[in-house]
């Protein structure tokens, strides 16, 4: 379970990136955070991962404060970043192996890695190929494989579908739904309103550091989500 309680972040230059944000992602739930560039979505993720300290409020992972006990908290979360390069000189399996060990899974076999890579839809011939030969979509699959192999209860995804082709994006969507069925709490920041509509149980819209809208699946399926989103965005520019 991921919880943001009054989460605020003001940077050294005075910019208020996150302004008392509250939300909760329960296990077996996909929460999508929508918003323009610079709305504060990535800041929220950085706070959960303790890459920065909050100015106010808390980011809880399985009710552990990630600011106070970062290492303990990070045991229960996996992270998929936007456009990760990974280690170019290493093969897919070696990359997976390294991050699995860091994620607290030191005793996995080759076959375990292969299973996961098959699961994310990577072609067999790529398993032992060097990462620098990979396309963006393939790299993203490895990124997700790393998250899967860690087998944490919570998953943070930062713009995971940006730059993916439709087929890869569709595969990715299925992946997420499967993870959800396994009971993971999934937090995803995205620009992709259609993707959000397809998978999210709840969506939030962020604007200038504030969470300006929260809708459950039932709610946003009733009203037109695109329209709502654009309305909120226009208010910004107005």
């Amino acid at each position: 379970m991921l919880q943001a309680i009054d989460l605020s972040k003001r940077y050294e230059d005075g910019h208020l990136a996150l302004d008392h944000v509250n939300f909760e992602v329960k296990s077996g739930e996909i929460f999508c955070l929508l918003g323009a560039n610079g709305a504060g979505k990535t800041t929220a993720i950085n706070l959960f991962l303790n890459f920065i300290d909050p100015t106010d409020g808390k980011a809880l992972i399985n009710e552990i404060d990630s600011c106070k006990l970062p290492l303990e908290a990070k045991k229960h979360v996996a992270y998929v970043s936007e456009n990760v390069m990974l280690y170019g000189n290493f093969t897919a399996r070696q990359n997976l192996d390294f991050f699995a060990k860091l994620g607290g899974k030191p005793n996995l076999s080759k076959n375990d890695y292969y299973t996961v890579m098959r699961e994310v839809g990577l072609q067999e011939k790529a398993f032992e190929a060097k990462l620098k030969t990979f396309s963006k979509g393939m790299r993203q699959k490895i990124g997700i494989a790393i998250a899967i192999i860690k087998d944490a209860e919570n998953i943070l995804l930062d713009e995971p579908t940006s730059g993916l082709d439709p087929k890869a994006a569709a595969e990715f969507q299925n992946m997420l739904l499967r993870l959800k069925e396994q009971g993971k709490a999934i937090f995803m920041s995205t620009h992709d309103i259609f993707r959000a509509k397809a998978v999210a149980d709840r969506v939030g819209i962020m604007k200038e550091g504030r969470l300006v809208m929260l809708r459950t699946r039932e709610q946003f399926l009733e009203e037109n989500l695109e329209k709502v989103y654009l309305e909120y965005m226009q208010e910004t520019t107005a």
Binding site: K75, A78, Y79, G103, G104, G143
Partner: peptide, 8 residues
């Protein structure tokens, strides 16, 4: 970032 998202 990826490495530090673990309990490392």
């Amino acid at each position: 970032k990826l490495a530090l998202s673990n309990a490392l």
